[in-house]
């Protein structure tokens, strides 16, 4: 696909956040992790999937009118560590950064161990320690079971 075509499909936004280089097929999960649709927001959210890029296919998510917080965005690295985030101000990239995996993950992933106490009706959010970054591996602080790779995206809450 030539450059001209790509521009038409993915129009620039005036202000907001562009989450780029999302692993192919993961855009909806990124939206889910960020909880964008759950929040009371009027922001226009555009999702582009299977977009051509220099390194193959990728997904893109754009959130207009909102500058997402870095801590929120870092959660994405659980399922797509190559993501880059562009903060757009009046059509200009004001800031650009990579996501970084936080030390602990709370409330986003459920424990894959069905007999873990966090999968019962208890007033706690599942919580994990990140024990390995590449590939991502996390350990439940309750039952100590490890979850890695695909299992993480399969267990998003």
């Amino acid at each position: 696909m030539d450059k001209e075509n790509r521009k038409i499909k993915i129009s620039p936004i005036r202000n907001g956040t562009v989450i780029d280089h999302i692993r192919k097929g993961q855009a909806l999960k990124v939206v889910k992790i960020l909880g964008i649709m759950k929040q009371d927001t009027d922001s226009v959210v555009s999702i582009a999937m299977n977009v051509d890029s220099s390194s193959g296919k990728k997904d893109i998510v754009k959130v207009e009118g909102r500058e997402l917080l870095r801590e929120e965005l870092d959660k994405i690295s659980l399922i797509s560590p190559e993501v880059t985030v562009n903060i757009i101000d009046d059509y200009v990239v004001k800031a650009k950064h990579r996501v970084k995996l936080p030390g602990t993950i709370k409330g986003i992933v459920r424990c894959r161990n069905t007999t873990c106490i966090t999968n019962q009706k208890e007033p706690v959010e599942p919580e994990f320690l990140v024990i390995h970054e590449k590939p991502v591996s996390i350990k439940c602080i309750y039952c100590e079971r490890e979850t890695k790779g695909e299992e993480i995206s399969e267990n998003l809450r």
Binding site: T115, I117, E122, C140, I141, Y142
Partner: peptide
């Protein structure tokens, strides 16, 4: 003593 894994950690909290 509890049949579910992680119960003791939860209790400690």
């Amino acid at each position: 003593r509890h049949p579910q894994e992680g119960a003791a950690r939860l209790a400690s909290k």
